[in-house]
Amino acid sequence: MANKFICTLLLIAVCAKSISADGIENGNATTISAHPYVVAIQVTDGTRVCEGALIDSNVVVTTAQCLANYDASQLVVSVNNSQIVSIAKSTFDGNFDDTTMEYDVAVLKLAEEVSLDTIELASEEPATGASGVVTGWSSSGALVDVSESIISASDCVSGEYTYEEGDVLSSMLCGLAANKACDALPGSPLVANNQLVGLVSWGYGCANSANPAVFTNIASVKSWVDQTVESL
């Protein structure tokens, strides 16, 4: 199995245990009004460390690595590109493995409700070849989109790409980014057909046809998210 501690992503340039991306490079400018569900997870000095998606008025879904690598009590959530909201409760999937990056998903309950449009969780994973969009902030602080061609886990390890059998698991999806985009933060949402289908998780290298980005497969973890939201 290839070592997932190698610094990552076609779309991320992050290490599995060391989040170091500064923001998306080569994305296309967009606005928060077009993607009101996109949130930044940041430390108190304003530095973004992860991103996420608002799935209810006071619930954000993001990646487990965000909570595994940071003390949640030191994090806040920026919504609507400026409003800062505290985190009341948080948890990540107990099956998360920081070596394989399996089940890289977490839920944050905000300390207050926000009046913004949310995004629906996908119940079915998109087929290989489906189009999606990752949205996140650039290193300069601008919100940008990256077009993605989605690839199923099985197709991602078929031999056409860098990944080997056992690298990309059922809780994951892959995606090839347009414009050789790089450096999205973990948790950046991947949306297709107006549903959240993935969260930026890990990968190898940066922006070439052999190295798709790897995303948490939302359809595969939806039941855990739903149950967790009810119990928080």
Rank of each mutant, 00 (worst) to 15 (best):
A2M: 10
N3V: 00
F5I: 02
I6T: 14
I6G: 01
C7S: 12
T8N: 09
L11Y: 05
I12A: 14
A16H: 02
S18Y: 11
I19F: 01
N26I: 00
G27A: 06
N28H: 14
S33C: 03
H35W: 04
Y37V: 00
A40E: 08
Q42K: 14
D45T: 06
D45G: 04
V49M: 13
L54M: 04
I55C: 08
I55Y: 07
S57P: 01
V60S: 06
T63Q: 04
L67D: 08
D71I: 07
A72H: 03
Q74V: 02
L75E: 04
V79E: 06
N81S: 12
S82F: 04
Q83G: 00
V85K: 10
D98N: 13
T100E: 11
E102H: 06
D104K: 01
V105F: 02
L110M: 10
L110F: 06
E112L: 07
T118G: 06
I119W: 01
E120H: 08
L121A: 11
S123K: 15
E125Q: 14
T128K: 13
G129P: 01
G136S: 12
G136K: 01
S138Y: 02
D145R: 09
I150F: 03
I151D: 02
S154N: 15
C156W: 05
V157I: 07
S158N: 11
E160N: 14
T162L: 13
G166F: 10
V168Y: 05
V168H: 05
V168W: 02
S171A: 08
G175R: 13
L176N: 12
D183M: 14
S188W: 06
Q195S: 14
G198Y: 09
Y204T: 03
A210I: 10
P212R: 15
V214S: 02
V214E: 03
T216L: 09
N217R: 15
V221F: 04
W224V: 05
V225T: 10
D226P: 12
T228Y: 10
T228W: 09
T228S: 07
V229R: 14
